[in-house]
Design a protein around this nucleic acid. Sequence first.
DNA 1: CAGTGGTCTAGACCACTGA
DNA 2: CAGTGGTCTAGACCACTGA
Lengths: 260, 260
Amino acid sequence: MTGVELARIGKSKVIRRRGMPLRKGRISVSAPYMVVVDYLKHELKRGRWLPGSQLPSESELVRRFGFSRMTINRAVRELQSTGLVERVRGSGTFAAQLHRVSSTLTIRDLHEEITSRGHTHRAEVHLAQEEGLPRTLSEHFGLAAGTLVFHTVIVHHEDGEPLQLEDRYVNPACAPDYLAVDFTRTTPTHYLLEVAPVWEAEYSIESGLPTTREAKLLKIKPVEPCLIVTRRTANSSAPITYVRLVHPGSRYQIEGRFKP
Amino acid sequence: MTGVELARIGKSKVIRRRGMPLRKGRISVSAPYMVVVDYLKHELKRGRWLPGSQLPSESELVRRFGFSRMTINRAVRELQSTGLVERVRGSGTFAAQLHRVSSTLTIRDLHEEITSRGHTHRAEVHLAQEEGLPRTLSEHFGLAAGTLVFHTVIVHHEDGEPLQLEDRYVNPACAPDYLAVDFTRTTPTHYLLEVAPVWEAEYSIESGLPTTREAKLLKIKPVEPCLIVTRRTANSSAPITYVRLVHPGSRYQIEGRFKP
DNA sequence: CAGTGGTCTAGACCACTGA
DNA sequence: CAGTGGTCTAGACCACTGA
């Protein structure tokens, strides 16, 4: 972008201040701070400022664009929060190393996921009962061994094929009516997100073999590698649920993408 | 927090405007917008506004805290960007369902990861050559089959135990000197992040079996489940690298945690 | 129509950096 | 000391919502 073009962008501010609408004809004009965001992103993308090198200062951008400093500041702060630049007070703004691939791991309702692919979802309930928390899970779940908890084992099918075994423990204090839910119609994930807002979560993703029972329920050979996700959620004072999700490796993978 | 306490917070603004420093004695006083952020976070955490319900409006918060509307707006916008609230123009601000567990999947240098655990890292280079891109990878990598690319196969050990097999293809246009690097001293990840800034990335995480050759190099049985990560990075105009990372399931897992 | 959030401005004071 | 980013303010105009 040349200095002339920048000057033209600067002028659009004046127009707005005189009360012109944000739309001229069919062309939508972005908010001034977005103009700056787009400009900086575009130049970063082109490699104009290599990682570690310094970007124009706020006052420099104020001069170039003709916007107020608060507007410039907001734009650059936006890039900072997405990790594209780093700012050092007293020193300057620098292009960041894009090490971090910030992705979003969603606690997504499997029912939604399957139906959004246009497939049918069916849930088989193999266990739904109250029981004492096994000693082995006490630490992971964050409740004392022997505490009465709800335990469900459900196999989710996509178009008739087992896709996920969901072995879940639920803290009755957070969802007292959990066992009354018809899990062939409502998934535990969906129900729990409704009744027990999540404040924090921990998860682990690993590859391993199913237990004998899991293999049988998933209708796979005991030697088939599985993608196993375990997850614990909690609100600010108590654990909500601990779940082990076992997926046949041949049928499930986690995908992600990052683009600033 | 009671109305009285809020009123007191409001007064602190007046003090600042008269030129008092941000620190009184040893007590550090947060910036006003952070006061509002902390207050709203704290109340959300306590469950004061359940998911979907409406938070106080900006003007209401202006009255309560005595800060200017821009300051209140910045605070609430901050919560919005972290996904804690949703805002609808003309309607209001609402507590969000915390479905999204926003986690950060880092492209991390394995050497760093291992040494930060206090362990020793050793890399064995099994292949480093130029070759034509296999047809099967053409689509994944984003280059035509047969294009000359660099290909390296490296096994990374943690305290002498094979932890990761790194099978990597590199676009020579982005890193022409790639093959000159001594990979027993510098990991490909480290080198590439230096010379070829990443603009976008895609990854997939799955569970599967190693190939016969991979199993041999990792010194595991061919039936041991592995956590397999494939990743493609690119800058704005060309793909940089495509890598398949194979980890023995028994020795590696991906962990994450989310807390607003 | 009153209420909501989205955004901009011009000016201000400040802490921190590095020559 | 000049330059940098961090932050706040008081007022403004606007688009959109929903009674």
